[in-house]
Design a protein around this nucleic acid. Structure first.
Lengths: 231, 231
DNA sequence: CGCGGCTTTGATGTTCATCAAGTAAAGTGG
DNA sequence: CCACTTTACTTGATGAACATCAAAGCCGCG
């Protein structure tokens, strides 16, 4: 990871609208002085499970996965998410150490602000506090919802769900490059790698998707949605 | 449901320590005036999925289940939880309608405060805001954790987990009456009712638990914990 | 060009849901 | 309080869904 930013751009950052809209220009300037922008390469770890939480982090660009390691050493992927949809780690206000790890699955840029600074703002500025709480609630809701949705589906439904998730939520395109390995998809939806691959092959045979290595093209969106819902 | 409270007892309520510790006596009195205490009988619904959210609710006594209805009409139980561990519904700050239903699984008393009053307090009082955010974060963390834990286990591990959950988290006793049906346990851990019963019977045969209808006695706690972890 | 990791496919076995049929328990109305 | 109805529980048998194992192909990289 490398520090990239030299001068402050917070005032015009998209993130300002999302949680920092209640801050006046003076406070934004102060935020700038307390902020670092750090780049991560694909595969690098942004937060490590068990590490002390000292900063408030949010994703400015790229794509990350949130995961934890379970007893048998396997990874359990909690969610894969893109900028602004994900504020650091949810536990920053409830725990003093990270409960989950966060890793870049594409090259990513993360903004890092001292947590104390954010907490101070939170105490002093009600509007900011409300905005932040709302944002954190939405993120938590989304993760809980996603987890429940996945749990309730069978294998084919889950694979269809993931394909739709990448297509609609992440890339907004019917053609996209999978940012994760087959195994990571398996860890995400809680199935074996072999069966994820098998199901993708079935979709291919049935003309629902086209697969060229990591590149996926969704051919029959409608059918995929039916499979995902029914699954 | 019936309204039970006539005079205010908020000042000495246990809940005060948890999220209302930052409020002075005057504000507590104001809270009292904006509060109702409502009793629910076992089985009654406290919040209904899709209903408009107008109040901040917390459980004062009893036991509730949080659940949602999925496409095929089945219930998906998200968590079962007891007083103070659960503040209304998580989505009160992110949604305008309930995403989940809450029902009493034991006779319960719920305190109901107008949401606007809480939001107002939240904006004005940084300490209160921080306390509330921390509490909500913890609740969300717990639900996410629990869901991930369950997902990662197999059938026997899940049933062992639930028995331990009731014994340790809810009743703090090796002997307890199950507050829910076998089917509700199945909906909670995502398995069929028949297999939940079968697994309980197996535990019984192996001398790990004793079962008399709804009454459970945990005989071999150690073995149950091993099964839950390994599962 | 050869090694190691990711992917693919088939064969096999385990786990778990589903169905069915019966028993116990809990309401319900006379 | 008893007969009746309904709902919850229990157990076995069967089959479907899914994991696991194994072997082979592919691809990037030293």
């Amino acid at each position: 990871m490398t520090k990239t930013d030299k001068y402050c751009v917070c005032a015009s950052c998209d993130f300002r609208d999302i949680v920092f809209s209640y801050l006046d220009d003076g406070t934004i300037q102060e935020l700038c002085n307390n902020k670092e922008e750090i780049s991560f390469r694909k595969g690098e770890i942004i937060n490590h499970e068990g590490e002390k939480i000292t900063d408030f982090k949010y994703l400015k660009s790229g794509l990350v996965k949130l995961y934890r390691r379970v007893s048998n050493g396997e990874e359990q992927v909690i969610t894969i998410t893109r900028p602004f949809e994900f504020v650091s780690n949810m536990s920053i206000f409830s725990e003093d150490r990270y409960k989950y790890s966060v890793a870049a699955v594409e090259d990513s840029v993360v903004c890092v602000v001292k947590l104390d600074f954010i907490k101070d703002l939170f105490m002093k500025n009600g509007g900011f506090a409300m905005g932040l709480l709302t944002k954190i609630s939405k993120i938590n809701d989304k993760i809980i919802n996603q987890t429940l949705d996945i749990r309730q589906k069978n294998l084919v439904g889950r694979v269809a769900f993931v394909m739709l998730y990448f297509s609609k939520e992440i890339y907004n395109s019917k053609v996209f490059d999978l940012p994760v390995s087959r195994k990571e998809i398996a860890d995400y939806i809680g199935m074996s790698t072999a069966n994820v691959i098998r199901t993708l092959s079935d979709f291919k045979k049935d003309g629902i998707i086209k697969v060229f290595g990591k590149t996926i093209e969704i051919v029959d969106l409608n059918k995929l949605e039916i499979i995902s819902k029914r699954g």
